[in-house]
Amino acid sequence: MMQQLRKWSWTLCLVVMVVGLTACTNTEDTSAASESMDETTAIDTPVEEAGEAPVASESGTVPAGLPVLNGAATVEMQINGGTVVIEVDGDRAPVTAGNFVDLVERGVYDGVSFHRVVKSPEPFVVQGGDPQSKDPSVSPQMLGTGSFTDPDTNEPRYIPLEIQPSGADSPLYSRTFDEAQIGEPPALTHTRGAVAMARSQLPDSASAQFYFALADLPFLDGSYAVFGYVTEGMDIVDNIEQGDIVESATVVSGIENLQQPE
């Protein structure tokens, strides 16, 4: 009986944490969290803004007008004086990886904070990348609602949900595996050290925010887009606390694989 109770309690905790991914608020202020649940329903952007996200094809055709990574790239992040190495997979997540590498190259992540860290009752995620977090005048309760604004258009850039089924030649766009009734796992799964994009409940609403998986999180597979993995410095990721800063992010190899839209 006690084992069943513990199992039920852990299952409930997982449900709460996944719902927390949709809230994306400062966990230190529960009243603000309850208020912002109406405004922000995911790991990243508000639903109101995400309504302008691009519509992508389900056929595997890469959407136009977005950076694409044709191959691999390596990104190094300096966090708390240590180096976190991320291998970015443009072969199986070309748009998601291209967006991330492009933002790194633009310096978008230099100085952003990690606004959401969930380690209890079990290791879950470390989330950051909100461009608003560079501005000290922005309320901590607003972190988790920001997107990257393209200086060329002065509009937020959103990318489609992009997840490639294992064994497939190209990704599925704009739908979760549940919606598409795909029963196989993704080619890129939420194993410990996975790096994935945060988004709202709308599939095509990811922009700049990303998260590190602190443990194997198979219940997120097919719903959020993994685009790479931490290959060095996972101990540094494990020690990140809310408010810690990305001191710098640099593309150290593979920038030649980044293709900008014409």
Score class of each variant (00 low, 15 high):
2 M>D: 14
4 Q>T: 13
9 S>E: 15
10 W>R: 14
17 M>N: 15
21 L>I: 10
21 L>Y: 11
31 S>H: 15
32 A>K: 11
38 D>F: 15
40 T>A: 13
41 T>F: 13
49 E>K: 12
54 P>D: 04
60 G>Y: 00
64 A>Q: 09
76 E>P: 08
78 Q>C: 12
79 I>K: 09
81 G>F: 14
82 G>W: 10
85 V>T: 15
86 I>S: 01
88 V>Y: 09
89 D>H: 02
90 G>L: 08
96 T>G: 07
105 E>I: 12
109 Y>F: 03
117 V>I: 06
117 V>D: 09
117 V>P: 04
119 K>S: 10
128 G>P: 02
130 D>H: 06
131 P>N: 05
136 P>C: 03
138 V>N: 02
139 S>V: 10
142 M>K: 11
144 G>L: 00
144 G>R: 00
147 S>R: 14
148 F>L: 07
149 T>Y: 06
149 T>C: 11
151 P>L: 02
152 D>M: 10
154 N>C: 13
155 E>F: 06
158 Y>T: 06
160 P>E: 02
164 Q>E: 14
165 P>L: 03
166 S>N: 12
171 P>Y: 01
173 Y>V: 00
175 R>P: 08
176 T>W: 07
179 E>L: 06
180 A>P: 01
180 A>R: 01
180 A>H: 00
183 G>Q: 04
183 G>N: 09
187 A>I: 09
188 L>P: 00
192 R>I: 03
195 V>S: 04
196 A>L: 04
199 R>N: 04
201 Q>K: 15
202 L>H: 08
203 P>W: 05
203 P>D: 01
204 D>T: 02
205 S>G: 01
208 A>Y: 03
209 Q>L: 03
212 F>W: 04
212 F>Y: 02
213 A>F: 05
213 A>N: 03
215 A>M: 05
222 G>S: 03
224 Y>R: 07
229 Y>A: 01
236 I>D: 06
238 D>E: 07
239 N>Q: 15
242 Q>I: 09
243 G>H: 01
246 V>M: 11
247 E>L: 06
250 T>I: 09
250 T>Y: 09
252 V>R: 02
255 I>W: 09
256 E>Q: 10
256 E>R: 08
258 L>D: 12
